[in-house]
Amino acid sequence: MSILLDADVRVLIVGITGKFGTFSVKDLAQSHTRVVAGVAPGRGGQAIEGIPVFSSVAAAMQETHANAALIYVPAMVALDAVLETIEAGCPLIAYPGDGLPVLDAMEMRAAALEHGAHLVGPNSPGLISPGKAKLGFMPSFCYAPGPIGVISRSGSLSYEACFRLSQAGLGQTSVIGIGGDPVRGVNAAEAIALFHDDPETRAIIYLGEIGGSEEYALAEYAKRPDAKPSAALLVGRTAPAGKKMGHAAAMIGSYAESWAAKVEALDRAGVVIARDLDGLPAAAASALARTMKPAA
């Protein structure tokens, strides 16, 4: 098992004729992920790398029975593309793009919740279930199958963190990029709930940052008596307050958004803390060791 994304996924790519869309067709094929359709308004009937192109998401889903969408369109038309995909009944959508107005992110999130769809993003590399499939553009060599569920606010950090976990023999059930923006589709609390319900995930690793309040969702979860063990690495210990550190949401506006406040809350809740990237594999192994052995 894994969360949201399995080997039987049938992916459609919205914006398949663009640079990212065309790159993704080849990249997903190399990751053994089945791409069944592309969407580009006005380009229906064409083919890209052998993949049929449709003019609307509804037509693509009807013809190809796609059940997940990867959306590569510019921020100014992203809300339209995501709403079209949600309303066509697609249950799983990744929108990796950045620079999305927060009001549009709010509308996307509300529409996904209303239709029972899972939206990954914005400003995220997407979702991967190593050895099975990927819905995004993360570098596949960083990942290996295994028992750890990973949640990350940062793309770059998740690549190197997962590479180090994989090298240490700590593979992953799924790795979800919840994104660097303040409003997102699947958020930390929802990603935690998905990993909690996944029987193969034995520990949850959270890669967080300064700014915002998502990390407190993990602290609340870790206090539950039935919580799976968890570890966290938060970056930005040395970041000054009041300065945006690259990501829209990575800015300390109050004490609660600081590294120290979050680490204290997570530590008190029983989350294993990695002080820096170097300490992450040991923290993950330590969390995994706390897992109850399943009854033989």
Partner: peptide, 28 residues
Amino acid sequence: SGGAGMTMAAMDAIDGAGAHPACFLDVS
């Protein structure tokens, strides 16, 4: 460095080695 998260991770690693970062500079 490259990427917001990794740039912050590198800043923290510099701090962990007893030195201080002069900037957050993401060229990705």
